[in-house]
Amino acid sequence: MTKRKFSLRPASAAILLGSAALGGIVGGAALASDDAAIAGEIAAPGPAAVMQSGVHANLADMVEAVGPSVVQIQVKPEARSRTAAGPMTRDEALRRFFGQPSPHGDRARPGGSLGSGFIVDPSGLVVTNNHVVANADVVTVQLSDGRELEGRVLGRDDKTDVAVVQITQGSGFQAVDWGDSDGTRVGDSVFAVGSPFGLGNTVTSGIVSARGREIGGAYDDFLQVDAAINSGNSGGPLFDASGRVIGVNTAIFTPSGGNVGIGFAIPAHLAREIATEIVQNGSVSRGRIGVSMTDLDEDIARRLGLSSEVGALIAEVEARGPAARSGLKPGDVILRFAGEKLEDGRDLARSVGEAKAGTSVPVEVYRDGRLLALELVIGSDRVAWS
């Protein structure tokens, strides 16, 4: 089924809110419309463990079961890393230029932030958003019973906005179960737990409104939900009707800075994969082929002799890179990757990123009016966290 894309007009802006001051608006990303200057919040769901025996009478039973697995994450100003200056990441730029000041005046702590997360292993592994932990090495994790424990950031991935924190004190924590985000359907009931505006253990509910939403990132594949998500929900879990985590709440679309019923969550299958790799390797490895792409519109497609604007148009090929060694050239249009039809360059980026480095993948390429079959060598693009 063709994915429905969420397109932003040129004047629109994506806003990350995960680094708002403590006590103020925190966590999340918002999308602004052309009609108003907007600030929004991001919230992400985490995994929750629910007893699978018996039948839950209502949502209250489910919330009671998963509540102890949802945590609040505080990043204090002094905990932020002092790393060498370099290019700003997408998250950093959004935080710097679109972050909101705290409405609580002198009680705010400049440079601090607050968000949500969820425990995925009894040892104290916590999944959250990358923008929640920002550039911190150490964070404070507050459990549902009020205890505050130290947490160490194991690693993060800014491309998918996923991070993992290890609680360094205590053991035997209650973990949640991952659910099947691939099997989630539009209309399925969901509920979110987190700390909007710092109000811990807040529960909201709704349905899955759409799937496969793209809001500007190369690896976007968001679930859209209408459960209320606000600042501070970032990194918190989105649960299905069985109390399993199917997503991590990450962004909202808003004309006012508050929730209007359009939220976005990272699918559990992606968040789990990234979190597992961070825990195992301390970094994220993606496939790469060394190309840049451009949009294939109707006019370009006609000039190339294509009947439709479907496929990934290669604009440049890195000299001696994987794509060049595989025979790809500028002007080629990749129509299929590993037998799967590509809608656009974003599809190619995701497919290459998920491919294993060192392998060869069959691709179908349109060039000068002919279809060619090539074996595309996948290179490595290991993203180390520092």
Rank of each mutant, 00 (worst) to 15 (best):
G287W: 00
R96L: 13
L17I: 07
S205E: 15
I25R: 15
D368W: 00
P237E: 07
V317F: 03
Q142C: 02
S116G: 08
R80D: 00
L270F: 04
M51Y: 03
Q169A: 15
V141R: 04
V50Q: 04
I215K: 02
V127M: 13
E298H: 09
A43R: 06
D295W: 02
T168A: 14
L304C: 07
M293R: 13
D157E: 05
E375L: 12
G28K: 07
Q142T: 15
T83K: 04
V248D: 02
A79E: 07
R303C: 07
I15G: 00
I274N: 10
D121N: 14
F173Q: 07
L17N: 12
I229V: 13
P87F: 12
V225D: 08
E214I: 10
A13E: 14
Q72R: 14
T89R: 06
A14C: 02
D180G: 03
R96M: 10
Y219P: 02
N129M: 09
V284K: 01
P196S: 03
L342R: 01
I289D: 02
P267Q: 12
E78R: 11
V63R: 09
S256T: 15
R147Y: 01
V190G: 02
I215W: 01
L59K: 11
Q52V: 11
L31N: 12
P10W: 08
K159R: 15
A44C: 11
A275W: 00
L22H: 10
L16A: 15
R213K: 11
G212K: 10
V190Q: 03
G27H: 08
G67S: 15
A355N: 07
